[in-house]
């Protein structure tokens, strides 16, 4: 395993914390329903940009924290994040060379995959899930270029 740079690690956790805060920000109206899963977007970015830093294990821990943060069943987001980050890390060499639009498509699939896992888990509880449960997948793919380019440009480490 390659040696992990400390600044990279700090950047990783800092952005994840910011994403967590964004996840629970009380947006108004349509924004609320369409607010993408920022944490997973950030995790995917790091999985593609620095796969040796953004391991599946870290994604799992972040998922567990998000579970507690949003009061969901413990392990729900952990499982979804770990699984989709596993896929991204596995394919990072390929995805990295895609055009940004193509990346968006891949991110769409990854977000959908995570969302389906969460959907299954919530169904154990027989919780009714409204149709706009799926909306964040779409908006997540739409904001992906912004997130990706922004992070790439402000990255100093």
């Amino acid at each position: 395993m390659a040696k992990i740079k400390l600044p990279l690690l700090i950047a990783y956790w800092l952005t994840v914390v910011v994403a967590m805060a964004l996840n629970i920000t009380p947006w108004k109206g349509a924004f609320l329903m369409a607010s993408p899963d920022w944490v997973l977007l950030i995790l995917i970015y790091w999985a593609l940009a620095a796969p040796e830093t953004a391991s599946v294990g870290k994604a799992w821990i972040v998922g567990l924290l998000v579970d507690v943060l949003t009061g969901q069943l413990l392990g729900q987001y952990a499982l979804a994040y770990a699984a989709s980050i596993f896929l991204s890390v596995k394919q990072h060499k390929r995805i990295r060379h895609y055009l940004i639009i193509q990346q968006s498509l891949v991110v769409f699939m990854l977000l959908l995959f995570a969302r389906v896992l969460i959907f299954w888990i919530e169904n154990i509880n027989h919780q009714p899930v409204p149709i706009n449960f799926w909306l964040p997948v779409l908006t997540g793919a739409v904001v992906w270029p912004v997130v990706s380019l922004l992070l790439r440009n402000i990255r100093i480490v």
Binding site: I24, P26, W27, M33, T70, V129, P130
Partner: peptide, 8 residues
């Protein structure tokens, strides 16, 4: 605390 956990 004005936070939002899950929109639904």
């Amino acid at each position: 605390l004005s936070v939002n956990l899950a929109p639904y």
